[in-house]
């Protein structure tokens, strides 16, 4: 099949960037979307032009490195699919495809279609963990966890950190990402000691990184390649309100005269 590609090209962080149109013939329908871009890049190099930079690594839908906005959808038109797992059989001869990077203040463009998602790592630094020292764990089967709870925690834990939720959100919010992490731990006994701290700190960090606010558009769950539900956003809201508004401060256990 033949394709017309409109691709965002930007030399570096400072460059203004622009769309450039490319024509590609002989695209095989069994190719993955990224393999199609590989073919384009090989042709560009042979012509002496600069290949299109895009992020990718495992190419099996789990590392979360890849991510392109394809014709207006993060990760493209297929639901529950990462860009690397999208195959060209979902396009047809003569299609025009517009390819853009994730757009968010918190994800500055590094080059072409590559963005800097270190803001997600920084969110994780604000409590996306259980503070447990190596070697201090008890026997794994001492803690009973109902299968349903564990499965639900796994639903949240499947997040691959690709950032499509942010890219799709009309407000550029990172709520689905943060909610998945907070819920994962809130559902498990291991996450209880730091439950409140985690919710408060991660939500505050989200603010500091320049993400937008959730207005319940539900776009994030619709593009999430792991189909993570916005039920977790409800859970995050609950966790945050319980931790910050409803519960008393955990201090004041010592009497002070004046």
């Amino acid at each position: 099949m033949k394709l017309k590609l409109n691709i965002w090209r930007q030399k570096n962080r400072e460059d203004r960037g622009e769309f450039v149109t490319y024509h590609l013939d002989d695209v095989n329908s069994h190719m993955s979307f990224l393999e199609m871009l590989d073919v384009l890049n090989q042709q560009l190099i042979e012509k002496g032009e600069q290949p299109v930079a895009f992020e990718h690594d495992c190419r099996e839908g789990i590392c979360g490195a890849c991510g392109l906005v394809i014709n207006g959808y993060p990760h493209g038109p297929e639901e529950g699919t990462t860009t690397c797992q999208l195959h060209m059989r979902h396009f047809k001869d003569g299609d025009e495809i517009t390819i853009e990077p994730w757009r968010s203040k918190a994800f500055p463009v590094v080059k072409d279609l590559v963005v800097d998602r270190s803001s997600l790592d920084r969110l994780m630094q604000h409590g996306g963990f259980v503070s447990i020292r190596t070697g201090s764990a008890e026997d794994a089967n001492n803690t009973l966890i109902p299968k349903e709870k564990s499965d639900l925690a796994m639903d949240a834990a499947e997040c691959i950190g690709c950032g499509a939720c942010v890219a799709s959100c009309p407000n550029g919010a990172a709520m689905l990402f943060v909610s998945a992490k907070v819920s994962h731990f809130a559902l498990l006994p291991q996450g209880q000691p730091e439950r409140k701290r985690r919710a408060i700190q991660m939500v505050q960090a989200m603010q500091d990184e320049g993400f937008g606010a959730c207005t319940n558009y539900r776009e994030c769950e619709a593009v999430c390649p792991k189909r993570i539900s916005i039920n977790f956003i409800g859970m995050l809201n609950r966790e945050f309100i319980k931790a910050s508004v409803l519960s008393g401060a955990e201090k004041g256990g010592k009497y002070r005269s004046k």
């Binding site: 963990f129 447990i132 201090s136 009973l144 966890i145 109902p146 564990s150 291991q190």
Partner: peptide, 22 residues
Amino acid sequence: NLIIDQCVAQGVPFAREYGGKL
């Protein structure tokens, strides 16, 4: 065996049986 203990303590959601065990 220590690895499994450590990972569970970190909150890794391993598959479980209905009785709550791994």
